[in-house]
Amino acid sequence: SEEELEEFAKEVLRRGITIIVNGIRITEVEIFVKVLREILEKR
Rank of each mutant, 00 (worst) to 15 (best):
I39L: 14
V33S: 04
L40G: 01
E4G: 08
E28T: 15
N22P: 03
K10R: 15
L40K: 05
V35F: 14
N22D: 08
E7Q: 12
N22S: 03
E28K: 10
R25H: 14
V35R: 02
I24G: 02
A9M: 12
E3Q: 13
R14W: 12
I20E: 08
I19A: 01
E7N: 12
V21F: 14
R14M: 10
K42A: 13
V33E: 01
E6W: 15
E30S: 14
V33R: 06
V35C: 04
V33M: 11
L13F: 15
I19P: 02
K34P: 00
E6M: 15
I17R: 03
V21H: 09
K34R: 10
E2T: 14
E11P: 01
I31A: 14
V12I: 13
V29E: 03
E2S: 13
L5H: 01
I19R: 00
G16K: 02
E38R: 04
F8A: 02
F8K: 00
K34T: 07
E28A: 12
F32Q: 00
I24K: 07
E3M: 12
V35Y: 13
I26W: 05
F8D: 01
E7D: 08
G16P: 08
R15A: 11
I19K: 00
E11M: 07
E41W: 06
E3Y: 14
T27G: 02
E30K: 10
E6Y: 15
E28R: 08
V21M: 09
E11W: 08
G23F: 13
R14V: 04
V35S: 03
E28V: 06
I39Q: 05
V12N: 01
F32S: 01
R43S: 08
V21I: 15
L36Q: 00
F32A: 03
T18M: 12
G23I: 13
A9G: 02
S1M: 11
E3S: 13
G16Q: 07
L13T: 01
I39C: 02
E3N: 12
L36T: 02
N22M: 06
E38W: 13
V29M: 05
R25K: 11
R15Q: 11
R43G: 09
I24S: 03
E41M: 07
I31Y: 08
G23E: 03
K10D: 03
L5F: 06
I20L: 09
K10I: 09
F32P: 00
R14C: 03
E38I: 08
S1D: 07
V33G: 02
N22H: 06
V35I: 14
R37Y: 04
I20Q: 05
I31M: 12
L5K: 02
I20N: 02
A9Y: 05
R25T: 13
I20V: 09
I26K: 01
K42Y: 09
V29Q: 01
R43D: 07
G16Y: 15
E3F: 14
E4I: 13
F32Y: 05
E2V: 13
N22W: 09
A9F: 08
T27S: 11
F32N: 00
I26D: 07
